[in-house]
């Protein structure tokens, strides 16, 4: 009953999907997030190569990054001097894309300045609404993950924060717990 297009989870964070590059951009930052020669690394480099071909002669600042944190640093460095007309492309796992999107959104970029190519969407970073700890695990929306902070079992909700890229996790079995007499 819940329409996928209307939720906070971008389509590419549900299943792998590569958005087209934006040829109207004047300059671009290309963040290629994925280590080494493994499956992910190979896939993100293929996405990056496709985008570079689409963009032709437009100037592209490409950063090959080992992880999302490195990509966020590279993004901040580029945005510090970027002029309007600049676009940002991010190739990586959905989890990495969500993390970089969060940094870009916090830095003030608009949705029409961002493009994502997610090569896998099986890993999620889940934020515990009860204790604020986060955990990263291969878990689907609707699945359950243990919170490393408060040890509760968290239901991974189909709800993603723009500002952190985390999925919402809340206690899955609260209604099965013994209650206090005073309640």
């Amino acid at each position: 009953m819940v329409s996928p297009s209307a939720t906070s989870v971008p389509p590419w964070a549900r299943e792998p999907h590569v958005e087209p590059a934006d040829p109207t951009g004047r300059t671009h930052t290309l963040l290629v997030v994925g280590p080494g020669d493994g499956q992910t690394g190979t896939a993100v480099r293929a996405v990056a190569a496709g985008w570079q071909e689409e963009l032709g002669a437009a100037p592209v600042h490409r950063h090959d990054c080992a992880d999302a944190a490195v990509a966020v640093d590279a993004l901040h460095a580029d945005l510090a001097v970027a002029r309007v007309g600049h676009r940002v492309l991010v190739a990586g796992t959905a989890e990495a894309c969500l993390a970089v999107r969060a940094a870009a959104v916090r830095a003030g970029l608009a949705d029409d300045e961002l493009r994502f190519g997610a090569v896998a969407a099986d890993v999620r970073t889940v934020w515990c609404v009860h204790c604020s700890a986060t955990t990263t695990a291969a878990v689907a929306a609707g699945g359950v993950v243990a919170c490393p902070g408060c040890a509760r079992s968290l239901l991974v909700y189909e709800h993603v924060s723009r500002r952190t890229g985390h999925h919402l996790g809340f206690m899955v079995d609260a209604e099965d717990q013994p209650w206090e007499e005073s309640a």
């Binding site: 109207t24 300059t27 007309g85 608009a110």
Partner: peptide, 9 residues
């Protein structure tokens, strides 16, 4: 637009 300004701006 020729300089790449997106519509949102």
């Amino acid at each position: 637009r020729a300089l790449g300004w997106p519509e949102s701006r």
